[in-house]
Write a protein that binds this DNA or RNA. Structure first.
Length: 492
RNA sequence: GGUGCCAUAGCCAAGUGGUAAGGCAGUGGUCUGCAAAACCACCAUUCCCCAGUUCAAAUCUGGGUGGCACCUCCA
C-alpha cells in the first residue's frame, strides 16, 4: 500500500468490485452526503464509460449510536427511523442523478456475518471480550495506521477522549457492544448486544465482494479511524494481502471557506438544494471539480430589506452552475428540433472523435472530470457553430449535429449530466426562477401579447417600451424564427 | 503535540519536468427592427515568496508565508 496515485488493474479483467461507505440514516440527508454520493457515483459511471462492468455496493449503517439516540428522542423505533431516513436518502440521491447501488447491504441483515467475523478475530487473538463487549487489540495488528499515516504512539499522545480502562490500549475500538436498556440487540456468544461502528463494513465487503476487492471509497473524514479500523478487522481476519486494493477519498465541501457544521447553521438538506436550483445543477457543479479536491460553495443569506432575520438562502455557486448547464440544454433542444429522431449520423466527425477520446483519457487518469467538462464545452461550441451556419451541405450539418448531440449525452452520462429532456429541464428551470422572483406570469403573458400586437403594427417604439417593462420584471424576451419565447433573467 | 491537504488571471478550475485546458465575468465585432442567445477576436511571458537541482520547473528538493482538515460524532 502506498498513498499515491497508482495504475489501476482490476482483480478480474474488465470487472470492478467497488464498495462505498453509505449513510447512517438518522436525519435527513444534507448536501455533504450528496457531495460524497455524487463523487462515487461519478466514478462508477466513469468506470462503466471506460468499459468496465462495475459491481457497486453501498451500505446503510442502520444500527448505530446516533440512530438510537435520535429514535429515543423521538420515541420512535430505531429500526423504523433508520428505514425511513434510508428511503429518504435514496429518494434525495436520485434527484442528483445518483444511480441505485447494485447491492445495498444493511447492518441489521448481516448480524450473523458480523458475529462470525468477530469470532474469527478472537480466534486469531486480534480481539478480546470484556463484560459483554468485544474490542479490537490494535497493538496486535502491526500495520495499524498505515492508511492514515499515523502511529499508535502518535495517537496515544494526542488522545482527546477519556480512556476506558477495560481496554488494553486506548486506541482499541469496540467490535461488539453489550446492550443497554432501550437499545436494539441481538443474541451473540458475548450476550445480548449490537455491532460497533466499523465492523459492519468489514463483514459486508466480504459478503458481497469477497475478502479482496478493487475499490473502496468514502469521505476524507473516514480515513481515520473508520477505514483504518476496517483494514485492521479484515486483514486481521483474512491476512494482510486481503481487503481493498485501492482507496479513494473525496474532498469535503466548505461554505465560504468554513466547514459545514450544525452549530454554524450552514447544513443544507438535499431537498432544499434540489428545490432551489434543481438536482442537476449540484451534479454539474460537482463534476466541474476534481473529486479529491475540497470545494468551496458560496451561499448568501437572504434578509429582506438588508437587515433583520434571515428568511432564506441563495446558493450562488449552484445558481451559476445551473446557468452553465442551461446552455447545454438550450443547444441540445435546438439540435433535437432541427435533426429529428431518426437522423442517420454517418461517419464519425473529428470533433466527436476528439470528445470521446478526451473523455476516455481524462476519466482514465484518476477520474479527471474537469478535463471532460472542458471537452464538452469545446464540443458545445462546435455544435453552436454548426447551428449558426447557413451555408454548406445541410444534410451533412444535420448528421454532424446528430452525432454531437449523441456524444454530448453519452459523455454526459459518464458524469451523470445531460440525461434530462431539454424541454422538461428548461420548463422546470423557468418555473423555479418564476417562483424565486415571485413573477406574475399572467401579467407577463399579457405584456407579451401587447408587444406582439405592437410589433405586428410595426410600432417598434411601443414594442421596445414593453420589452423594457418586462426587463424591469426580470423577464428577457426572445424573438426566434419559431416565435417569441421568454426566460427569467438570472444574472445573480 | 501528531498526521495530512491546499495556494494557478477579477472569479471558478485543470495541468505533477518540455514551454499555462476549460468556464464565468469583461472588451471589441458579426447577427438582430431593437434585444437576448449564439458565433468570431482579445483577455496569465506566468503559476504565494526565497533559494537549489536541471538543457528545461507551475510541476522536483530545501526553507518560509498564508489557509484548511483529521487525530472526538461528522460525507
Amino acid at each position: 500500500m502506498h498513498r499515491a496515485k497508482v495504475a489501476f488493474e482490476p482483480l478480474a479483467p474488465g470487472e470492478v468490485g467497488m464498495y462505498v461507505c453509505g449513510p447512517t440514516p438518522y436525519a435527513p440527508a444534507h448536501i455533504g452526503h450528496a457531495f460524497s454520493a455524487i463523487s462515487f457515483d461519478t466514478i462508477r459511471r466513469a468506470l462503466q464509460f471506460l468499459g468496465y462492468r462495475v459491481r457497486y455496493v453501498r451500505n446503510v449503517t442502520d444500527v448505530e449510536d446516533k440512530i438510537i439516540k435520535r429514535a429515543n428522542e423521538l420515541g420512535e423505533d430505531p429500526m423504523a427511523l433508520a428505514a425511513r431516513f434510508a428511503a429518504d436518502y435514496n429518494r434525495d440521491m436520485a434527484r442528483f442523478g445518483v444511480m441505485a447501488p447494485d447491492v445495498e447491504p444493511k447492518v441489521s441483515t448481516h448480524i450473523p456475518e458480523i458475529i462470525a467475523l468477530i469470532e474469527k478475530l478472537i480466534a486469531n487473538e486480534r480481539a478480546y471480550a470484556v463484560d459483554g463487549d468485544v474490542y479490537y487489540a490494535c497493538e496486535r495488528f502491526a500495520p495499524y495506521g498505515k492508511l492514515s499515516g499515523q502511529s499508535l504512539e502518535d495517537l496515544r499522545a494526542g488522545a482527546r477522549v477519556e480512556v476506558d480502562e477495560r481496554k488494553q490500549s486506548p486506541a482499541d475500538f469496540a467490535l461488539w457492544k453489550a446492550a443497554k436498556p432501550g437499545e436494539p440487540w441481538w443474541e451473540s456468544p458475548w450476550g445480548k448486544g449490537r455491532p460497533g461502528w466499523h465492523i459492519e463494513c468489514s463483514a459486508m465487503t466480504t459478503a458481497h465482494l469477497g475478502v479482496t476487492f478493487d475499490l473502496h471509497g468514502g469521505g476524507k473524514d473516514l480515513i481515520f479511524p473508520h477505514h483504518e479500523n476496517e483494514i485492521a478487522q479484515s486483514q486481521g481476519a483474512y491476512g494482510e494481502d486481503t481487503f481493498a486494493r485501492h482507496w479513494m477519498h473525496n474532498g469535503f465541501l466548505n461554505f465560504g471557506g468554513v466547514k459545514m457544521s450544525k452549530s454554524l447553521g450552514n447544513v443544507f438538506n438535499c431537498d432544499q438544494i434540489a428545490d432551489a436550483v434543481g438536482g442537476e445543477a449540484l451534479r454539474f457543479f460537482c463534476v466541474e471539480h476534481h473529486y479529491r479536491s475540497p470545494v468551496d460553495f458560496e451561499v448568501e443569506e437572504v434578509r429582506p430589506g438588508g437587515e433583520g432575520a434571515v428568511t432564506g438562502v441563495r446558493f450562488r455557486s449552484l445558481e451559476a452552475a445551473d446557468r452553465r448547464l442551461e446552455k447545454f440544454y438550450v443547444t441540445l433542444q435546438k439540435i433535437d428540433r432541427l435533426v429529428g429522431a431518426n437522423a442517420d449520423p454517418g461517419a464519425e466527425i473529428t470533433e466527436v472523435a476528439q470528445l470521446r477520446a478526451t473523455a476516455r483519457e481524462g476519466l482514465a487518469d484518476d477520474f479527471n472530470a474537469p478535463i471532460v467538462m472542458a471537452a464538452l464545452h469545446v464540443a458545445l461550441t462546435h455544435a453552436n457553430r454548426l447551428l449558426d451556419e447557413t451555408k454548406g451541405d445541410k444534410a451533412l450539418r444535420k448528421r454532424s449535429l446528430a452525432q454531437l448531440a449523441a456524444a454530448l449525452r453519452e459523455v454526459g452520462a459518464a458524469l451523470g449530466i445531460l440525461a434530462d429532456d431539454p424541454a422538461r429541464y428548461l420548463a422546470a428551470r423557468r418555473d423555479r426562477l418564476v417562483a424565486r422572483n415571485r413573477l406574475d406570469v399572467p401579467r407577463v403573458e399579457q405584456l407579451l401579447a401587447d408587444r406582439a400586437a405592437a410589433r405586428a403594427a410595426k410600432d417598434f417604439t411601443r414594442a421596445d417600451a414593453v420589452r423594457t417593462e418586462l426587463a424591469g420584471l426580470g423577464v428577457s424576451v426572445l424573438d426566434t424564427p419559431a416565435g417569441t419565447d421568454w426566460t427569467v433573467q438570472d444574472a445573480g
